[in-house]
């Protein structure tokens, strides 16, 4: 068990090193003049020279990387050019919005994926299964930005139920806060529930053929109880994997939804900084979202053990 965790931690460590290195060297080693690209086409030679000095393009690269890494570990991501403040502070202030959006959208997509996945697996090939599965297949072809616009059109322009833009922080009341995040979260959920539903359905169909499900039926337990209490947990390993990948992606991938709905989250910070050529901020955002992604995936790996006692056992045995 300890050996296994150590192995995974080691892997996590290497990936983090790779991630920071790539983020750092991207600015320094790419072909073309990074300083010119960062400064943008309208910049003067002086501006470019300043940026080049800022990046320290003339010093030894490895030394600069180590210096930078040392600062990053201390939480110093440098200073923003535009916002005139610390990059780390800007990221921390945007973080709650992204996390809130993430949690809400994960909850909504599970609320769609689990019932539909279970119903479809219970009666595969039935009318409802066919209807749900083909709707889901069709929805896979809807990009998240199209989904966002469609939902805005339906719910805020046509029905006028929910606001299309504008974020209301928790401090302005929890109800208003959730209301302002509901449509963006629903947009993400409508796209993300599909793969979750599909893997749950196919894993659950396999589980329902297991002997212990027959045994549970022979005990005279009602079908919903068997589906949710006996079959759901053993069928949810792939679901958790996909969910973990999605959460990781959403840390950075929420930028589209944040842009559509004008939410002040990390993703929009990144986009804004790209347009503003605020390279310290861009670097900070990329670093942050990538690390968040890597760590979420690591956590999901660990979560497996708690879902399936057999894997827990393998981990313990692996120690011996």
């Amino acid at each position: 068990m300890i050996k296994l965790i150590a192995k995974k931690l080691l892997r996590l460590f290497f990936i983090l090193i790779a991630v920071t290195a790539i983020t750092f060297f991207m600015v320094n080693l790419l072909p073309g003049d990074a300083a010119y690209n960062i400064a943008g086409p309208d910049s003067t030679a002086e501006e470019i020279e300043n940026i080049r000095k800022d990046l320290g393009l003339n010093e030894n690269v490895v030394v600069r990387y180590l210096n930078w890494l040392f600062k990053v570990v201390k939480g110093d991501l440098g200073e923003s050019l535009l916002a005139r403040g610390l990059v780390s502070r800007a990221i921390v202030s945007r973080l709650p919005v992204t996390i809130e959006l993430l949690v809400l959208s994960v909850l909504l997509s599970l609320m769609l994926a689990i019932p539909f996945g279970v119903i479809c697996a219970y009666k595969p090939g039935s009318l409802i299964d066919k209807a749900v599965s083909s709707t889901a297949f069709g929805m896979m072809a809807v990009p998240v930005f199209v989904m966002g616009i469609a939902l805005i059109y339906i719910f805020s322009i046509h029905l006028r139920w929910l606001p299309a833009t504008g974020f209301s922080p928790i401090s302005a009341g929890i109800f208003a806060n959730i209301k302002s995040l509901l449509l963006p979260a629903f947009t993400i959920a409508m796209v993300e529930w599909v793969p979750l539903m599909r893997v749950l359905r196919s894993d659950m169909i396999t589980t329902l053929q297991e002997n212990y499900i027959l045994m549970a039926r022979s005990k005279g337990l009602p079908a919903p109880y068997i589906l949710f209490r006996h079959a759901l947990q053993p069928s949810s390993l792939t679901l958790i994997t996909i969910l973990g990948l999605q959460i990781g992606h959403l840390f950075g991938g929420s930028m589209i939804v944040e842009t559509i709905f004008a939410l002040p989250g990390i993703g929009r910070l990144l986009i804004g900084s790209i347009f503003g050529r605020d390279y310290a901020m861009v670097q900070g955002c990329i670093l942050f979202t990538t690390i968040a992604y890597v760590i979420v995936n690591f956590a999901v790996d660990m979560l497996y053990a708690f879902l399936d006692p057999r894997i827990r056992k393998q981990m313990v045995d692996g120690h011996g």
Binding site: I15, A18, V282, I286, T289, Y293
Partner: peptide, 20 residues
């Protein structure tokens, strides 16, 4: 695996940002 460890869209933005 290390390339896969990156969130795709972010890496994409980073590359196009720095490459133009």
């Amino acid at each position: 695996d290390s390339i896969l460890a990156f969130p795709g869209l972010v890496l994409l933005l980073a590359i196009t940002f720095f490459l133009g």
